[in-house]
């Protein structure tokens, strides 16, 4: 079932086109990654989907129904974890979660249960009476998440939830998102950290300048680009014949041997390294350390956009 369906969305800020005929389809049960540099239009796209921002053209459907600012029935099925920490500074952890849960759940008894579960989920049991100012950056992020997911939404938008947190908190957040997904929530995750997207997302869209540049699973994206797999092998002595044999392998694009290091650039494929090592063994070539670097999302992005992801 398609949970999010965005078609031909156009959003302009004066002369700047923030979203340029943007299309997006997200299926139920996915962890969908929206990857792009700062200013690429990720947050604008989410804000349009949530009806915070007006847009010039296009249509947005959530759960198969047209989305509008007053569709509170649809909003109640959605959770939002914004990029900025958006909580009351004057309320403590429990009060904040209870307030945000109260935007979706009217029953006090039901809410109390959900709040307890959310606190436990993000591991803030020891901080329930703390106000946000007393929390570390990582704990604040966890509070922000708890406020967004306490009401157990079917669809959750995470907008760069790991900005400025330490590796432990980041890992905890990412594991939490995967747990939510396993519990049945569909997740839309925006980030400019490619390793995060690689780690948790089942499908990824790379966007820049308000456009969708590529969309698919990680393997599908890697296959879309020409960047190949790099293989480096320490070889003490390599004959010309062996070098020629390596060069004649179908998947090898380029081969170099210099300073006792053999370097190969290969087409993307599942068994490149095994084939190269097999050939060396056949010819009784002794080798030492072996490095293999398949194309990463970063390579994909660089090739698609021609620039490094920032920040």
């Amino acid at each position: 079932m398609t949970i999010v369906n965005v078609e031909n969305l156009v959003k302009r800020y004066s002369d700047v086109v923030a979203l340029d005929h943007f299309n997006l389809q997200i299926e139920a049960g996915e962890v969908f990654g929206l990857l792009g540099p700062n200013g690429s239009g990720k947050t604008t796209a989410i804000n349009c989907m949530l009806q915070l921002l007006s847009f010039d053209k296009g249509s947005i459907e959530l759960f198969g129904q047209p989305m509008a600012p007053t569709r509170y029935d649809l909003k109640r099925r959605v959770g939002v974890v914004p990029q900025e920490i958006a909580v009351f500074d004057e309320l403590n952890v429990r009060e904040n979660i209870d307030y945000f849960c109260g935007l979706y759940v009217d029953s006090g008894a039901e809410r109390a249960k959900l709040v307890d579960e959310a606190i436990e989920f993000v591991g803030l049991q020891d901080y329930v009476r703390f106000r946000p100012k007393k929390l570390s950056g990582g704990l604040k992020r966890r509070l922000n998440i708890a406020c967004g997911i306490a009401h157990k939404p079917e669809l959750v938008f995470f907008d760069e939830p790991t900005v400025a947190v330490d590796p432990q908190s980041r890992n905890s957040i990412l594991e939490g998102i995967l747990r939510l997904n396993r519990e049945g929530m569909t997740v839309v995750y925006t980030s400019h950290y490619m390793e995060e997207v690689e780690q948790i997302c089942s499908r990824i869209m790379i966007m820049d300048h308000g456009r969708s540049l590529a969309c698919g699973t990680q393997d599908e994206l890697v296959r879309m680009v020409s960047t190949g797999e790099k293989v480096e092998i320490e070889v003490a002595d390599l004959s010309r014949e062996a070098l020629g044999a390596l060069d004649s392998l179908a998947f090898v694009r380029r081969v170099e041997y210099d300073d006792k290091v053999l370097k190969l650039l290969c087409d993307n494929g599942p068994h490149n390294l095994a084939s190269v090592l097999g050939l060396l063994q056949e010819r009784n070539v002794a080798f030492g350390r072996v490095y293999s670097e398949p194309p990463t999302l970063n390579d994909v992005f660089l090739e698609i956009t021609g620039k490094e992801l920032r920040d």
Binding site: Q51, L52, Y72, K75, R76, P82, A86, F88, L103
Partner: peptide, 21 residues
């Protein structure tokens, strides 16, 4: 200020909630 989306992040967060504006 805490309730309007064009004034604060908190306002924006509250506006996308399931309670009417």
């Amino acid at each position: 200020g805490k309730a309007l989306p064009n004034i604060s992040a908190l306002g924006a967060r509250r506006t996308v909630g399931g309670t009417s504006r």
